[in-house]
Simulated scan of single mutants.
Amino acid sequence: MMNALPTPLMAICLALVVSTATAADPRSTDADAREVQKVAAATTSEKAAASEWVTIIGKEGASGVTGLGGNLVECQGVKIADDASHLKTIPGVGVVAASRKFAYGDDNNLNSVEHFADCEVVLEFVLGEGCNSGVKLQGRYEIQLYDSWGKEALSGVECGGVYPHWVSAKRGIKYIDEGVAPLRNASKKPGEWQTLRIVFQAPRFNSEGKKVENARFLKVTLNGELVQRDVEVDSPTGNTTDPLPEVEKGPLYLQMDHGAVAFRNVRVKPL
């Protein structure tokens, strides 16, 4: 009877046997290597895709904004108040909310830290009854957010519309065009979370800084339904008497001074 090999020596012998067997079947080695490479490539691709998105408001909070005004609340969630034009906030992080309408002004709005040219924007929002908000690409070109639940007559001031140009009037403002109405009313009820997705093409400039191509909303969906397709915007929407100059890159702007509104899961992917 052969004496048993010491345990360390036995381990070495087994390793040599496995190594020899693998070398004897190179096809197995190649297949294993290809499978490892395939998994590694898929993992790298997933990580790269995830890293392309810039988080403005995420589960960890509003890390991508320049600051929160005193009237804005960072919270975990919101629900409609007894006065349906207001929102109640739930303590925590992940959501930025304006519980009611505040005075107009930049202190009550949000700007992203990073500036973007061509990009895709995905976000969720909720509105109080009768409330108004907006998402401005480069701080200049606005997709309107509004309580448009159940409305049949649509214009650029309804949810999903490209906002009109206007001038100051004795009482408020006067629209000088109609903007671009959404293709359909895809709005949900006040107090319900809604999803907006925008694919935006920034204006183009030549080497001398002259604009040679207008900005475009290539595609906008609201709650999964197409509301805008390939809409050219020849100048910043809103006030035509004092418009911001058009630029190659600008911040994502979330309007929060026109009524009760909250945002969450706000992300931008440069294209």
Rank of each mutant, 00 (worst) to 15 (best):
K59T: 15
T195I: 15
P91H: 12
E60S: 10
V121G: 12
E152I: 11
R184T: 10
Y141V: 06
A117R: 08
E74K: 02
E192K: 05
G172T: 14
T195K: 10
G134H: 09
A97C: 13
S99N: 06
P190C: 00
P182T: 09
V113H: 00
A62M: 01
Q194S: 08
Y163M: 14
A181I: 05
Y141M: 06
S168T: 13
S63D: 01
A103T: 07
A98N: 14
A62S: 03
S187D: 01
P91L: 09
D118P: 10
K189Y: 04
R184D: 03
H165N: 12
Y141Q: 07
N185M: 11
S63T: 05
V73D: 05
K79N: 05
A84T: 09
W166K: 11
S63E: 02
N111V: 01
L127V: 14
R140F: 06
R171A: 14
L72P: 02
E158C: 12
S85Y: 00
V167K: 15
E129P: 12
I57K: 01
D83V: 03
V122S: 12
T89S: 15
G128Q: 03
C159V: 03
G191W: 05
D82H: 01
K101E: 05
W149T: 14
D106L: 02
G69S: 00
N185L: 14
W166F: 13
V122H: 10
A153F: 07
A62Q: 02
G161K: 09
V162S: 11
L127C: 11
G161V: 07
K59L: 07
I57V: 07
Q144K: 12
G160Q: 01
L127K: 08
P91D: 11
E129R: 15
V162M: 14
V95G: 07
G128K: 03
G105E: 02
V167A: 11
Q138V: 03
P91I: 04
Q76C: 08
A84S: 07
I57E: 03
I176Y: 15
T89M: 08
H115Q: 08
E158S: 15
G64K: 08
L183N: 11
E178D: 13
A181P: 08
E120P: 13
K59V: 08
E142V: 00
S155T: 13
E60L: 05
K101S: 04
E142W: 00
I176T: 12
E120Y: 11
A98M: 13
G70Y: 07
V135M: 12
L72N: 05
E74A: 05
V121I: 14
E120G: 10
L110S: 03
T66Y: 00
G105R: 00
